[in-house]
């Protein structure tokens, strides 16, 4: 798993690649919380993510709750295949704002 953080419009984009599980979700959590602590809305880019389990999803749920309290947003972009299944199985697709591509992100 690797991830990188970059600017996209007024957001921070957290781009996840590979597999997120209990082994590396603490690293994702640190990065996500760091972005939110800097009062930036975040786009979590799933387009190169091949796998995520509940530890990764729990990290994103924690991030979403913090974002909501701070009047920020957390948007998931590009979810497909196994990660999309996890969002659907957990019904968290009803909780997160999910868009297909970065072009769908509003200014």
């Amino acid at each position: 798993m690797s991830f990188d953080c970059s600017d996209y419009k007024q957001y921070k984009r957290l781009h996840l690649s590979g597999e997120v599980d209990l082994h590396n979700s603490p690293d994702v959590r640190r990065c996500l919380l760091d972005i939110l602590n800097r009062k930036k809305s975040v786009i979590v880019d799933f387009s190169d993510l091949t796998y995520i389990d509940s530890s990764g999803m729990a990290t994103l749920v924690e991030g979403l709750n913090i974002a909501n309290k701070m009047n920020l947003t957390l948007t998931i972009v590009g979810a497909k295949d196994a990660p999309l299944q996890v969002l659907q199985l957990t019904r968290l697709n009803q909780v997160f704002h999910i868009v297909e591509s970065l072009e769908d992100i509003e200014e």
Partner: peptide, 16 residues
């Protein structure tokens, strides 16, 4: 509530 932490893993196991 879906956005409360915990229990996601067991939920997934039982669904699958």
């Amino acid at each position: 509530a879906l956005c409360e932490p915990g229990g996601l893993g067991v939920m997934l196991m039982r669904q699958v």
